[in-house]
């Protein structure tokens, strides 16, 4: 069981939304740069143990539903580590320029152009203005 296989399960592709999988983008390498090797080893060790205890099977042979259940159960062993690893995977995925473009996050750094926002209709403030001052005067 590798980090890459883990990423395949938690961040698969979605063709209907044109979203690539984490492994399509080699996110495992980015995640590896964010984590200590021991953290990854320990995390996978915990997951494998949970798979054995819960399903009497290896993690890699589980279906998606069972796999995701293992992640939930693994939180009971070390919630800090599991959440930390998952969040680092999400961070690596959602900082990839290709992903940022596909989700519509606007201009991607180094920001040559910036983002445009539509002009506002400040006539909306007429109602507020017509009600008059609301601050307390100090006399």
């Amino acid at each position: 069981m590798s980090l890459s296989q883990f990423l395949d399960v938690v961040l698969p592709s979605d063709t209907s939304l044109n979203m690539p999988s984490a492994t399509d983008l080699h996110i495992d390498k980015a995640v590896a740069n964010l984590l200590e090797p021991q953290q990854i080893e320990e995390f996978l060790f915990i997951l494998n143990n949970v798979a054995q205890e819960k399903f009497s099977n290896s993690l890699s042979s589980l279906d998606e539903k069972s796999y995701l259940l293992c992640i939930e159960k693994a939180k009971r062993v070390d919630v800090y580590l599991v959440n930390y690893i998952v969040q680092q995977c999400l961070t690596a995925y959602y900082t990839h320029p290709s992903v940022l473009t596909k989700i519509g996050s606007g201009a991607v750094p180094p920001f040559p152009d910036g983002n445009s926002l539509e002009s506002d209709d400040w006539l909306l403030l007429e109602d507020v203005y017509e009600r008059g001052p609301i601050y307390r005067k100090v006399i």
């Binding site: 698969p12 979605d14 939304l17 998606e64 998952v86 989700i103």
Partner: peptide, 10 residues
Amino acid sequence: LGKNHHQAFS
């Protein structure tokens, strides 16, 4: 996480 992730995120 998993196959419903992208739909929920979007």
